[in-house]
Design a protein around this nucleic acid. Structure first.
Length: 579
RNA sequence: GCGCCCGUAGCUCAACCGGAUAGAGCAACGGCCUUCUAAGCCGUAGGUUACAGGUUCGAGUCCUGUCGGGCGCGCCA
């Protein structure tokens, strides 16, 4: 609908350009907004104000000239100059009426567009180490990333979502050792469980599972195991890892490692699936290692002259690309760093040909961005292809107290806990209601106790109410919409036009949410739509009106139902038919 | 110390690449159920957009500085 106004302005500008009264760049300044104040009409443009500077005239005078060249349109009732030089457009009411049929015809596709032009875009998110269950902090990234992927799809981007599994690093070895120690404990051995190993109870569960499956085949005499460990915690656990590996041998160690890794990955996958977050691909870090991609990308960097050696390690000259420090890719002990595998992963992404590669990071990883952009560019890729979005922390409060969380210490509220307590829909909506770069206070008591007046229910309720009307319609044996062609011109109430106007905005909201990577816009829009609907519902009866009016109204609320369902779908929230 | 993010009503948050009188929800107060779900609707009240400068027709939005909060600054991931 906005496009119509833009098109009209473009024609006026073209005419003025032909007359030599505007220069060629003028068309770029065309922008049209929805008005906030109905007194300013339906749409507004600040075009004259923008151009006045270039042409060096009075904005209102220029607006007058534009207005004079504006072609006639059957949807425009009038266009007028207001304030410092705005051009306001007032639409004919009938312009909105055709929308109802359009929405009902397009159904679940209404709101979709082609602004993405099928551009291939990849979104990677969550990607936590599979060393423990997801906690509520990860939930925000999951809800945001998934909603973003859905919004991008709706806007016509060929969107691929992916989870990167860090299944090759030291953290996973620590998990393996943690499981092994708990397992030894179950075998009746005396153990000392390091405080920097994984403390969570799920480690004991994994150990029990291992014992059920493998009996005592991983059991050893532990009398020497804890002797002469270094005082430094990190060195100490590294020593335990190597002792574990030499006791069990590479093959059994790998098996032990896989027990922990597979269990955690499956757990995360299922957790996310229950949360409505489904990835198109799960990409294994180890697969990069096995294929030699990590060595390959280090070698490529080396060939391009971006690598030097110092203190027995290989360093990437990240400072040449704007990072504040150079970064190690290959440690003196021969192990590659996390950064090295991530570099290889992003090289792999680039090779897969995505036009845009989006990474959603938690705020705690933002220091990592510069070096990744650096290596991405150093490998010959255009830095514009790689985009990082930061999701700020959700700070948890319980009983007014901030909860500190750490995976290692095992003190955290899991995403699963949250879902059990407040429900999937409320949890997802709560997360996605905040724009990602805003710090977020997540009061658990509030989320739980307020679950009945969480905004998501407000929207779902609007949907359920509409469904209920249609159920009653059938129960009463009244004529349905099925074979009817309602006369929408019978809609005259102000609430009906408020609703129509709000419905007409939906495609614009989706486009804007996609282009700004801000799915929360859809959430706020839905709240507004629900409010306009509830107001209408309270003001006018649908079923008791005359036949032809009733059919027109039913068509309108059917369109409303479709838009609510489509919008909720983009946020991964269910549209309930009954509440 | 350096870097990134943030600061908007009592609380939690919006504000569409700088636009017109800064908006919602919760909490508070006052109304609305013989009629399609009151998980709803209507109204009232609530603000020097942290602070100080600057840029311009116009700033919550852009620039500089100050204060306050979060996060990061490893041959960890």
């Amino acid at each position: 609908m906005k496009d119509i106004v833009i098109h009209l302005l473009a024609q006026a500008v073209a005419t003025l350009q032909k007359q030599g009264r505007l220069d060629e760049s003028a068309a770029q300044s065309i922008s049209v907004e929805r008005t906030k104040d109905p007194g300013h009409g339906d749409f507004s443009s600040n075009l004259a104000m923008k151009l006045a500077k270039q042409v060096n005239t009075d904005p209102r005078e220029l607006a007058q000239k534009i207005l004079a060249e504006l072609p006639q349109s059957e949807v425009i009732e009038k266009a007028a100059i207001a304030g410092p030089g705005f051009i306001n457009f007032y639409l004919r009411k009938c312009a909105y009426l055709s929308l109802i049929a359009e929405i009902r015809e397009q159904g679940i596709n209404f709101g979709n567009s082609d602004v993405g032009h099928g551009q291939r875009i990849m979104v990677e998110f969550v990607s936590t180490n599979p060393t423990g269950p997801l906690h509520v902090g990860h939930g925000r990234g999951a809800a945001y990333g998934d909603a973003l992927a859905r919004v991008l799809r709706a806007a016509g981007y060929d969107t691929h979502s992916e989870y990167y599994i860090n299944d090759a690093g030291r953290q996973m070895e620590i998990l393996a050792v943690s499981v092994w120690l708990r397992y030894l404990e179950l075998c009746g051995k005396e153990i000392q469980f390091p405080e920097n190993a994984y403390q969570g109870s799920y480690v004991r569960d994994l150990a029990a599972k291992l014992k059920d499956k493998a009996g005592k085949s991983y059991c050893i005499d532990t009398s020497e195991l804890f002797k002469a460990l270094p005082d430094a915690k990190e060195e100490s656990i590294d020593r335990l890892i190597s002792r574990c590996r030499s006791h069990l041998g590479d093959k059994d160690f790998r098996a032990l490692f896989d027990v922990g890794c597979d269990a955690m990955v499956n757990d995360i996958r299922q957790d996310l699936a229950e949360f409505g977050v489904v990835f198109q691909a799960w990409f294994s870090e180890r697969s990069l290692l096995d294929k030699g991609d990590i060595d390959k990308s280090i070698k490529t960097l080396e060939e391009n002259g971006h690598i030097y050696e110092k203190d027995g390690a290989k360093w990437f000259r990240a400072t040449d690309f704007g990072d504040d420090k150079d970064r190690v890719v290959l440690r003196a002990n021969g192990a590659h760093t996390y950064f090295a595998s991530d570099t290889a992963y992003h090289y792999n992404k680039a090779e897969r040909g995505f036009d845009k590669i989006i990474n959603i990071f938690g705020a705690d990883h933002h220091g990592y961005i510069k070096r990744l952009q650096a290596s991405f560019e150093a490998l010959g890729n255009s830095p514009e292809r790689l985009k990082f979005l930061i999701v700020q922390f959700a700070i948890l409060y319980r009983g007014g107290e901030k909860i500190s969380m750490s995976t290692r210490s095992g003190e955290f509220v899991t995403l699963r806990d949250l879902r059990d307590e407040v429900g999937n829909d409320a949890a997802r909506f709560f997360y996605v209601l905040r724009k990602p770069d805003q710090h977020m206070d997540f009061d658990l008591d509030l989320a739980k106790s307020q679950s009945s007046d969480n905004p998501v229910y407000y929207i779902q309720y609007a949907h359920a109410r509409i469904c209920s009307v249609f159920r009653q319609l059938e129960e009463k044996g009244m004529p349905t919409l099925k074979d009817a062609t309602p006369n929408y011109a019978l809609l005259k109430a102000s609430q009906e036009f408020d609703l129509l106007k709000t419905l007409s905005r939906f495609p614009e909201v989706v486009e804007s949410a996609a282009s700004g990577f801000e799915p929360h816009q859809v959430a706020y829009y839905l709240r507004e739509l629900a409010n306009v609907f509830h107001t209408y519902y309270n003001a006018h009866p649908f079923l008791s009106s005359e036949d032809d009016v009733r059919l027109a109204r039913l068509g309108l609320i059917d369109a409303t139902r479709i838009v609510i369902a489509n919008g909720l779908g983009m946020l991964g929230v269910k549209a309930l038919e009954k509440m």
